[in-house]
Amino acid sequence: MNIRNAKEILDCQVVCGEELLDQEIHTACGSDMMSDVLAFVKDQSILLTGLVNPQVIRTADMMDMLCIVFVRGKCPDQAMIDLANERGIVLMTTGHRMFTACGLLWENGLRGGN
């Protein structure tokens, strides 16, 4: 699927990176612990998180992730949006909780990767 498909599945609002939605995604991970993302995640293209601070963007950037989905309707601030724009990362927000959001993506064929 691509990011646009994930947006529709999760009923997301796109915060920034509208022009990048056609990028293909193959795997996803869900975590509020950036330490875990850095230690255990590999080749994931979407990060689902309930954590909202600039280090989420920096972590995703380090891991070459294409998109961050903030769950439970959480919204990034302008500094985060500016950073994501600079790094070419799509930011989206969904009203779904973490468990449901991950489940919906799984149900539609996205997997956790290695």
């Binding site: 612990m33 330490s35 875990d36």
Partner: peptide, 15 residues
């Protein structure tokens, strides 16, 4: 609360 401090930093650096 900012998503760090899980005690994974140094081991991950080594890895």
């Amino acid at each position: 609360s900012l998503g760090f401090g899980a005690g994974m930093g140094l081991p991950n650096m080594k890895k």
